[in-house]
Design a protein around this nucleic acid. Structure first.
Length: 433
DNA sequence: TCTGGGGTCCTAGGACCC
DNA sequence: TCTGGGGTCCTAGGACCC
């Protein structure tokens, strides 16, 4: 039976490419994008990779390279990247009926009924159209399963045979040609095989994707659980991973940040947690969910050479499922006060909501007292909808709860932030002649 | 001085029940 | 020495992904 070909379309060096789209002077130069607080490298242009700058390295360790080679180091600008991602996905939607966005910079695209030759042409068209509409370069990998499409995409980026075209189409490979290619792929480069399993597999003589594919099912199940077994089947061309056209609602949502400087007082921690909970409430309401449980966590620095190390978390069961920010804030503050210890220098705080249920499906506490009443819940829901609407239109944080504080001197460092070219009128690209 | 943030799935083990 | 057999629910931790 003929299977449905799937393409993995993945942007090249996405964040660095986004910065270049609006700042052409960065083209041809080594560019890196930094994590929050300008801590680590999270994206690198090809030129930066060629300088030996690794993924995830702390910036302070590569100061010399940055200076010597005039590396352009930019703070991450997720507002910009999110907007560029939506443009990219919208473009893909025009090129194929079945698109599954997988992460901010990649999507699975199903192309039912295409012959291998048509797939080649369509992959080229995808690359050209995305480049034309967004300015972002992408690579395309094609095969019969998601895992093989991922692997093909990796080949399109790394293997000299495919790199020039930026496309690797495995759909017309014979089994022996495919085996040949798989035996040149390190087992650790297979999607789903992380550092831990790579080490384990190598110890057992399983060195390549081909070796993994050929292992007996019983051995795979016993040593790599059912997830490893699925990976091997996918390498054999048997789809085991579902096609998810509409993203399922999230089951947990987290908002957490490291601070721009260490903070000690409960007042400032409370201020930060209040801001995070407000953001969390927005995310929760955006997917029309309410939360039944909440976790609050704080910690000091892992790396502090002085000062005591401390990390703690508390889980609260909410009296009834809610997405009403003032209620979430009240619970978060209560939890924070319980785990706060004075005299420590805190580096990070975060809030998570768990056991999310659909807003419409919640159990209303019909006979509960006061704040639980259905009319009040409905009024609060409308209030939040109004606040979210205003913030969406006027910019995040335009309207917020008073006690969140306005100084926020603990906010993260972003020393070299590009403008929000695509989402803010006052920061739109200017053409000067 | 300086080390990201946000998710999912799977399994094992304990508490508790009949 | 030996000490039921299920079943459910919950949590913690591991492993992986971007």
């Amino acid at each position: 039976m003929a299977q449905k070909p799937v393409a993995l379309v993945d942007a090249n060096n996405f964040y660095a490419s986004c910065e270049r789209v609006f700042n052409p002077s960065l083209r041809g130069k080594p560019v890196i994008v930094l994590s929050n607080n300008d801590g680590c490298v999270v994206a690198r242009s090809d030129e930066a990779k060629a300088l030996g700058i690794g993924m995830g390295v702390p910036v302070f360790q590569i100061r010399d390279i940055i200076k010597k080679h005039h590396v352009e180091a930019w703070s991450s600008n997720y507002t910009l990247y999110g907007s560029m991602s939506r443009r990219m996905m919208a473009t893909l939607e025009t090129l194929a009926p079945e698109v599954e966005p997988y992460s901010i910079d990649e999507a699975f695209v199903w192309l039912p009924g295409f012959s291998p030759a048509e797939l080649d042409r369509h992959a080229v068209k995808i690359r050209q159209t995305v480049a034309m509409h967004t300015g972002i370069p992408v690579s395309v990998g094609l095969s019969q399963t998601k895992t093989l499409a991922k692997l093909a995409n990796h080949e399109a980026k790394k293997n000299p045979v495919f790199k020039g075209a930026g496309v690797c189409n495995l759909t017309d490979f014979s089994q022996s040609e495919l085996d040949e290619l798989l035996s040149n792929v390190q087992v650790g480069d297979v999607w789903g095989i992380g550092p831990r399993r790579t080490r384990f597999l190598q110890q057992h003589g399983v060195l390549t994707a081909y070796d993994l594919k050929e292992m007996p099912d019983g051995w795979l199940l016993k040593n790599l659980t059912v997830t490893g077994l699925r990976t091997a089947w996918e390498l054999r061309g048997i789809p085991c991973l579902p096609q998810e056209m509409t993203p399922p609602a999230k089951k947990t949502i987290v908002t957490s940040r490291g601070f721009g400087r260490l903070i000690e007082s409960l007042e400032e921690l409370t201020e930060a947690v209040t801001v995070y909970v407000s953001r969390l409430g927005e995310k929760l309401r955006a997917q029309h969910s309410v939360a039944s449980r909440m976790e609050v966590f704080i910690n000091t620095s892992h790396f502090a050479s002085h000062g005591e190390r401390y990390a703690n978390a508390i889980t609260l069961r909410l009296p009834q499922p809610t997405a009403y920010t003032p209620e979430l804030v009240a619970h978060a503050r209560r939890g924070l006060a319980k785990i706060y210890r004075p005299g420590l220098k805190y580096q990070k705080a975060g809030v998570m909501v768990l056991d999310l249920v659909p807003e419409t499906g919640r159990q209303l506490n019909l006979f509960g007292e006061g704040e639980g009443g259905p009319e009040i819940i409905e009024r609060n829901r409308q209030l939040m909808a109004a606040v979210d609407g205003i913030n969406k239109e006027m910019g995040q944080g335009t309207l917020r709860l008073g006690p969140a504080g306005t100084r926020q001197t603990w906010n993260m460092r972003r020393e070299k932030l590009s403008r929000r070219y695509t989402t803010r009128w006052d920061e739109i690209l200017e053409i000067t002649g």
